[in-house]
Computed example of a mutant assay.
Amino acid sequence: MPPVRLSKSAERWFLKKIAELAAVNPAAARRLIDRLERQKSLLSSFPEMTEKGVLEGTRKVSMPPLVLTTRYRDGVIEVVAIRDGRQKDAYAPDELLSENEEDTPG
């Protein structure tokens, strides 16, 4: 079973979110930490259990209210990004259009 770790930026994002939540509801913050730990354990056992991500080599993990983006690299499953589930994907379809396609009259 490959280890699962958070990238530095994902860890910073998550710690900030936990601090904000803990200021309002410490028990909810603890539950979210526990859920992330369970998710990491599941990912270690079943690394391909989730849908493929927008970018090649990534996978999208739904953990409401959060969405994790993971990748497998050098024998490690890395959570490379965490975002609020209400946010769009980093590369939404309209953002993938080239300048030529945008300039083409419809």
Rank of each mutant, 00 (worst) to 15 (best):
S41N: 04
R73I: 11
K17R: 14
S45R: 08
F46Y: 09
S44G: 03
R30K: 12
N100K: 15
N100Y: 10
T69N: 09
V24L: 04
P3M: 00
E48C: 01
P93E: 05
D94C: 11
L96S: 15
K40V: 01
K17F: 11
T104C: 14
T58V: 03
R38E: 05
G53K: 02
S45C: 02
F46C: 02
E101N: 12
R30S: 10
L66V: 05
M49D: 10
T69Y: 06
L55K: 13
V79Q: 03
A92M: 14
P65A: 09
N100D: 09
R71W: 03
D103C: 07
L15S: 13
S7E: 06
A19V: 10
L21Y: 08
S41M: 03
N25W: 08
D84H: 09
V54P: 00
N100V: 13
D34F: 01
L21W: 07
L36S: 06
D34Q: 10
G106E: 15
E99R: 15
D84V: 05
S41K: 06
D94W: 15
P65S: 08
M63Y: 03
V61F: 00
T70D: 02
E11Y: 08
A29R: 10
R31S: 12
Q87C: 06
N100A: 15
L55N: 06
L43F: 02
R38Y: 01
S41P: 00
V61Q: 02
A10G: 07
P47M: 04
V80M: 04
K16M: 09
M1W: 00
R73D: 10
R83A: 01
I82V: 12
